[in-house]
Design a protein around this nucleic acid. Structure first.
Lengths: 147, 147
DNA sequence: CTAGTTGCAAAGGATTTGCAACTGA
DNA sequence: TCAGTTGCAAATCCTTTGCAACTAG
């Protein structure tokens, strides 16, 4: 999805909640679409500082929460107490297989696994929004002789 | 693994690092073995308060880190900025379903998913050693009306 | 004895919040 | 117009750290 389309959806989302589209919100949405990496709230704040019309830290945090709530961004914890964000729409979902030896990351996707996840969630009366599947091990080049 | 055995291993671990077995460390290890749920550092601190010979918050945090380092506890983030812990040894593998609303953690295990993981790994000529599967969403109590 | 430990309180990092001054619809 | 928004700074939450008083080996 292109930035412009994302903006339109964000406006619609805001309207439905009787909230307003403002310059800071616009800038934050666009900036989140400008990168294809994960970013932290602090990084977003830095990006905002580099603009004429930026946003304060408070507004960055408030807007990131809105974007997650609206399903525009996915958030994940980096395991060190900081939330990371990435834009979702138009990005196909994938999981990661990571080689412990060389650090190489392989992406894969399994419709079967996802179907079972839904089933498990269903059984627990749980509504999934997101999942993280990381397979760790050794790729063919790094396989130790003992394995 | 029984508490006594875990204690022995903890002592060995400490000795190897030239650290000392102390009353607070003993109590914290035992308390972590007393529950079969995930617990936070704060909960552990509460448990310590309920004992004659407790431990301060600082010691709780320091000891939990030691226990994770030694492979006695697994730690995970509840997605809301708090680390949760659970004892590992003698516990069979399971995956986690985490409520974005209240942070509650549900455990589950799916032989099917694991079989497919193996299959996927096989296809990529990859040897799995470990995996992390986290399903995030809303539990029945926290489900927003829009979902 | 003495290096490792403890508790306390202060420090730290990430995030949220109260409030008075703004501003979009 | 006026409810929603912003920036600021203070507050909060979780965790780590400095330090002087202890204590295990």
């Amino acid at each position: 999805m292109k930035p412009a389309a994302a903006l339109k959806r964000f406006e619609a989302f805001l309207r439905k909640k009787a909230l307003r589209m403002t310059q800071p919100r616009r800038e934050i949405l666009l900036a989140s679409w400008r990168t294809h990496r994960h970013f932290s709230a602090e990084e977003m704040y830095q990006w905002m500082q580099e603009q004429e019309l930026g946003a304060s830290r408070a507004t960055v945090y408030r807007t990131l929460n809105l974007l997650v709530e609206g399903g525009f961004l996915a958030s994940m914890n980096n395991g060190k107490g900081t939330q990371l964000y990435e834009h979702i729409l138009g990005h196909s979902h994938h999981d990661h297989m990571i080689c412990i030896g060389c650090g190489k990351v392989f992406e894969f996707r399994s419709a079967e696994i996802e179907a079972i996840q839904e089933e498990v969630a269903e059984r627990h009366n749980f509504r999934l929004t997101h999942h993280v599947l990381r397979l760790e091990g050794y790729c063919s080049k790094c396989r130790p002789s003992s394995l």
